[in-house]
């Protein structure tokens, strides 16, 4: 397994004259860095910038390095950074298996085998032909996680991925997600306003004020 690491070098994001975020951090393999702050503190802006979707209205200084390579100027699809949203966002026009295959790189070998194994791993063996709309919230979240992992990212951004889940599912999902990310040796950045998320993540916590 390759040991990935994500570096955010002297990041400063501003909207006009209003500074939003300042950050300097290095996230090692399997490590989760939690960024906390109330809404409007610029958490989502930070994520959007790292993922490559920041609208041009913002001014940004700083670099993003992934495994030592500067990816600051790359388009989103070539950064190798995966994203887990608040909603599972399973493509409604594809089957469960189709969603997983969408995540697989075109060059991947044994595509069907990988999809089958991924579903078995989350206890959804045989679910490949199913309509995602027929899955429960927890099942959808697990499929979304597997789709992310199958796309073999080099780092992962988590945008409050547990806040849409019921309380009893939340703890279980956190464990599942963080276990998988750790095992895959992926550096992860978690953005949340839920302190329990940060505790379960078990890594460093940075608080954004404003």
């Amino acid at each position: 397994m390759i040991a990935h690491h994500l570096e955010l070098e002297r990041v400063r994001i501003a909207l006009g004259d209003t500074p939003l975020v300042e950050l300097d951090a290095r996230i090692g393999p399997g490590e989760v860095l939690t960024v906390m702050g109330p809404s409007g503190s610029g958490k989502s802006t930070l994520l959007a910038w790292i993922a490559g979707f920041l609208p041009p209205a913002f001014t940004v200084a700083g670099r993003i390095r992934l495994d030592g390579h500067d990816i600051t100027g790359l388009p989103a699809e070539r950064r190798g950074i995966g994203l887990l949203f608040q909603d599972p966002m399973l493509f409604p026009h594809l089957s469960v298996g189709g969603n997983l295959r969408f995540g697989l790189p075109a060059a991947a070998t044994d595509r069907e085998g990988q999809v089958t194994r991924a579903l078995a791993e989350i206890g959804l063996g045989g679910f490949a032909p199913r309509d995602p709309a027929t899955l429960s919230g927890g099942q959808k979240a697990r499929v979304a996680l597997m789709r992310l992992l199958l796309s073999s990212p080099c780092a992962v951004l988590l945008d409050e991925p547990f806040s849409g889940l019921d309380a009893h599912l939340r703890h279980e999902m956190r464990r599942l997600v963080f276990d998988h990310l750790r095992r895959a040796g992926l550096p992860s950045l978690l953005v949340t306003h839920d302190r329990e998320d940060a505790e379960d993540a078990g890594g460093r916590v940075i608080e954004l004020s404003h």
């Binding site: 993922a51 490559g52 979707f53 388009p75 989103a76 699809e77 950064r79 190798g80 950074i81 995966g82 994203l83 949203f85 909603d87 966002m89 493509f91 409604p92 026009h93 969408f102 995540g103 790189p105 789709r147 992310l148 796309s151 990212p153 951004l157």
Partner: peptide, 24 residues
């Protein structure tokens, strides 16, 4: 977010158009 998600999964903008936006 559909397009963003597809891009972060490594899909090219053209693939996003044909496989995500158009069917949706």
């Amino acid at each position: 977010r559909w397009a963003r998600l597809a891009l972060t999964l490594g899909a090219s903008p053209a693939r996003v158009f044909w496989r995500v936006r158009l069917p949706l």
